[in-house]
């Protein structure tokens, strides 16, 4: 389910309905998120140079650590009770 300006609607999305989720959001999660497991045929996306380069062009997310422009928690953002994680920059991509 996709929503703008926080109006996500009541309840959670009906998963079998055709939702208009932007491709970039799906690809970003499936290519750069999710658990990486080495299996017997597993193709690790990052192992394939050409694919990795194309992915870079696609979602601009395959990056080594991009330093956060913001101070880490403790300097700003106030985190009472220690809930809410320290924000971190960039998902650790397989690209290396």
């Amino acid at each position: 389910m996709s929503a703008s300006d926080g109006h996500a609607g009541p309840g959670f999305a009906e998963p079998f309905a055709r939702r208009e989720i932007a491709l970039v959001d799906v690809l970003d999660r499936l290519l750069a998120g999710g658990v990486v497991i080495t299996g017997d045929i597993t193709l690790r996306i990052a192992d394939v140079d050409l694919v990795r380069i194309d992915l870079k062009a696609l979602i601009s997310a395959v990056n080594a650590q991009v330093p956060s422009p913001w101070p880490t928690a403790g300097e700003g953002g106030g985190d009472p009770g220690g809930r809410g994680a320290e924000p971190e920059r960039a998902i650790e991509r397989e690209a290396s």
């Binding site: 932007a22 491709l23 970039v24 690809l27 970003d28 062009a57 696609l58 979602i59 601009s60 997310a61 990056n63 991009v66 956060s68 913001w70 928690a73 700003g76 953002g77 106030g78 985190d79 009472p80 809930r83 809410g84 994680a85 924000p87 971190e88 920059r89 960039a90 998902i91």
Partner: peptide, 26 residues
């Protein structure tokens, strides 16, 4: 954005800052 991230982080067990979105699919 900083303020929003800070506020939202308080409702979350964890948070991640991803690289800004760009590229041909944007």
């Amino acid at each position: 954005a900083r303020r929003l991230h800070g506020d939202l982080s308080r409702y979350a067990a964890d948070a991640r800052l991803h690289p800004v979105q760009s590229g041909p699919l944007t």
